[in-house]
Nucleic acid binder design. Sequence first.
DNA 1: GCAAGCCTGACC
DNA 2: GGTCAGGCTTGC
Length: 281
Amino acid sequence: MPELPEVETVRQGLERRVLGRRISAIRVLRPGTVRGQPASWMEGRRVASFHRKGKTLIMELSGEGSRPRADLIVRLGMTGRLVLNPREAPLLPHTHACISLDDGREELRYCDPRRFGMLRLSTPQETEQMLHSLGPDALEVTESEFTGRMGKRHGAIKGWLLNQQVLSGLGNIYADEALFAARVHPQTPAGKVSKAARRALYRAVRNVLRRAIALQGTTFRDYIDIEGRPGKFMSRLQVYGRAGQPCRRCNNTVQRIVICGRSSHFCPSCQRRPRKTAFSL
DNA sequence: GCAAGCCTGACC
DNA sequence: GGTCAGGCTTGC
């Protein structure tokens, strides 16, 4: 599932292979795939930059002559892929759009079996609005903003970490891994996480994301980068997907429960439930 | 039938 | 406003 490290890996690949190239044509194979402005808006423009905020990728397209700048906003959702292929390579099933580059011998293809992802072609102002609705990027946020945003919220810390309006970039895998690293029980109300644990969680989030980026992300099922390579972080997972297996730290059994409708993996002895005493803060 | 991310909407 | 359930989609 593409979370911050996977999207960053895709962004870096695009920067290496697509930056500065001209979009010669776009073929939309599934109507409605590109929302916002008409897809033909992209044609003839150059790719000026690739940015990322949380899990959202922004491909900035140059203005040409009297045409203003435009942005292609990419959300990979759960099974979305962007892959760079030679024109003659066979299409993966569920390929919804192909963006031809330069002379058309190579194209960037968007494929998404579950269709939870989206492409949106927007004006710079629309992009700004969209990014404004996202919380700070999980790698850019400062410690004081991170701990401050936890505030006195009553919801489970797990849900807080997944809320993209509060903090952007974490999905189920890295939320569980960060909570394990910080030894915080996923059901702890966000506002009840102690000062020391907030600091530990802040560091754990950054640490797990940085390490995952260094290994090109996690391929649990579908994720691959633009050159078709899977991530290499799976062997580093401590709790995600390891329910019933021994904790790598204490040998107790990793558990799986549902919090906010999402599966949560944790070690009940490394991550204790908060005690409800006056001194628990 | 379950999993995922995220949007919508119901409820306090 | 905060919180969370429900629904979307499809391969396993």
